[in-house]
Design a binder for these strands. Structure first.
Ligand SMILES: [Mn+2]
Ligand SMILES: [Mn+2]
Ligand SMILES: [Mn+2]
Ligand SMILES: [Mn+2]
Lengths: 217, 217
DNA sequence: ATAAAATGTTAGATGCCTCTAATATTTTAA
DNA sequence: TTAAAATATTAGAGGCATCTAACATTTTAT
C-alpha cells in the first residue's frame, strides 16, 4: 500500500494502458493534471518499487505487482460505488467522486462487509465489472451504441461513468443500465441516433452521447 | 478543509484541551506520536491559518474557527462509527480505526445521507455525543463507575472508545451501553469493583477497566 | 536528409511534514 | 537563589510531490 498519490498514478496507468499495454508520460500527465516532470519523477519512484517498468523515452508499463495493486484499488472503487447506490440510496451520477476517496480507505474488513452486504456483486452501478478479491476481472468486449445498424435491438450494459453531467443527461433522457433500445435512425449528417425505448418514447442522442453507451445484442 | 495531517492535529488539540482549554506541545507530540519540533512547526502553520492561538512557550488554544473545524471532524467520525455498526453490522470494537479514515472524507452528501439513514442520531456506539451539523455538541457531565458508592444502581452511558482491546474485554464481560449495573463491592486493596448485572451474573472489574466506564444514576 | 515540432528528461526550486542536534526558556529542587 | 531538570524552540536536513526553465531525444514534415 503506497501513498494516495501513488495509488492514483497506478490506477491511471492501468486505465490508460488497457488497450495497448502501455501509456506515455504525456497522456498520464494530462489525465492526472500535472506537468511532465512530475510524472517523470514519480515513474522513477514507482520503478524502484517494482510497480512499473520504465525506461527513459519509452512507454510506461505496469508490472504484475503494479497490476495487482491497480485491480485492488479498482475493486474498492467499484464496490464503494455500488454500496453508495444500493445501500445508501445515492444516485449513480453522484457516487464516483465519493468513491474516488473511499477507494483509498485501508480496511479489509470494511470492504469485506460491503462485499457481503451486496452479495459479491459482479458489476458496479455504471455496468463496469468488479474485480474479485484475487484481482480477477471479467473484461467483456463492448459494442458502442454508435456502432449498431438501424433496426437492431440491444441492451444497455454499461456507460462511461466519471462525468456527472453525462449521467445527469442520461437521467433526463430516462436511460438506465439494462434497458432495451432499438435503433430507429442513424443520421449521416451529425452522427446522432434515434432510439425506441421501453418508455415507448423516441429518444434522440447525439454522437457524443451515444458513443459512451455500451450495449449487448 | 486542510490536509489530513492538519485535521488530525486540530482534532487532537480539541480532545486534549477539553478540560483546561489549552494543550502543551509535549502532550500533542505524545498523542500524535511525533517529535516536538514537528508540533512546533505545525503550530506555526495553524496559527497563520488562524486555527490556533499560539505564542512561543505558552499553551496552545483553538480559535473559534479551529473549534468549528474540530467539531466537524468529530461529527464525521462519530456518524461514521454509528453507521458502521447500525447499517453495516460491524462490532463497536472494530469501527474506530475505520472511522479515523472516514472522518477525512470530504463529501457533505455522503454524511448527509448517513445522518438521514440513522435519523439524526445523538450518540455514537460508545456513547459519545454527536455534534450537530452546526457544531453544537451536548457535553454531558459524566460519572465514572469507579466513583459510585456500594449499593448504588446506575446505567452505563459511555465508554472510552479507541482501544480495541478494551472493548473486546467489555464484550467478554457482556457489558454494553444502556446496561443497568449495581455496585456490590468496592475493594480497598486494589480498587476493583464487583457488579450485579442484568445477566444475573456478578462481574468483577479492575480499577483500570471501571474508570473508563461512564454511568448515569 | 535536414529542420521543425512534439515529446521526454534533468536541474533546481518550493511547500508540506517529518526528523536530529543544538540552543533557549521555564519549572523544580537543592 | 542558583543549579539541574523539564519543556520548548530554532537550525538544518531529508523524503514526497509538485513546479518552471533548460536541455535532449524522437517523430514528422519539408
Ligand atoms: Mn467511478
Ligand atoms: Mn463506476
Ligand atoms: Mn472513535
Ligand atoms: Mn466512538
Amino acid at each position: 500500500m503506497g501513498s494516495l498519490t501513488e495509488e492514483n498514478y497506478i490506477k491511471s496507468i492501468y486505465a490508460l494502458s488497457q488497450s495497448t499495454g502501455e501509456v506515455y508520460v504525456s497522456e498520464l500527465a494530462k489525465k492526472l493534471d500535472v506537468k511532465l516532470p512530475s510524472v517523470n519523477s514519480m515513474m522513477k519512484r514507482l520503478a524502484i518499487k517494482k510497480l512499473v517498468a520504465y525506461a527513459p523515452y519509452k512507454g510506461i508499463k505496469l508490472t504484475e505487482k503494479g497490476k495487482k495493486e491497480a485491480l485492488a484499488i479498482i475493486r474498492k472503487h467499484r464496490l464503494a460505488e455500488l454500496f453508495l447506490v444500493k445501500v445508501m440510496g445515492l444516485g449513480w451520477e453522484e457516487v464516483h467522486d465519493i468513491a474516488e476517496q473511499l477507494e483509498h480507505v485501508n480496511s479489509p474488513r470494511f470492504y469485506e462487509r460491503i462485499d457481503e452486504l451486496l452479495n459479491s456483486p459482479k458489476f458496479d452501478p455504471h455496468g463496469e465489472p468488479i474485480p474479485d478479491s484475487n484481482g480477477k476481472i471479467h473484461t467483456q468486449q463492448r459494442t458502442s451504441l454508435i456502432d449498431l445498424a438501424e433496426g437492431l435491438t440491444a441492451t444497455i450494459t454499461a456507460v462511461t461513468e466519471d462525468e456527472k453531467s453525462f449521467l445527469d443527461h442520461l437521467n433526463a433522457k430516462g436511460l438506465q443500465i439494462g434497458d432495451a433500445v432499438t435503433i430507429m435512425k442513424r443520421e449521416m449528417f451529425d452522427g446522432s441516433i434515434t432510439l425506441q425505448h421501453k418508455s415507448k418514447k423516441e429518444i434522440l442522442l447525439t454522437h457524443q452521447v451515444a458513443e459512451r453507451i455500451w450495449v449487448e445484442l
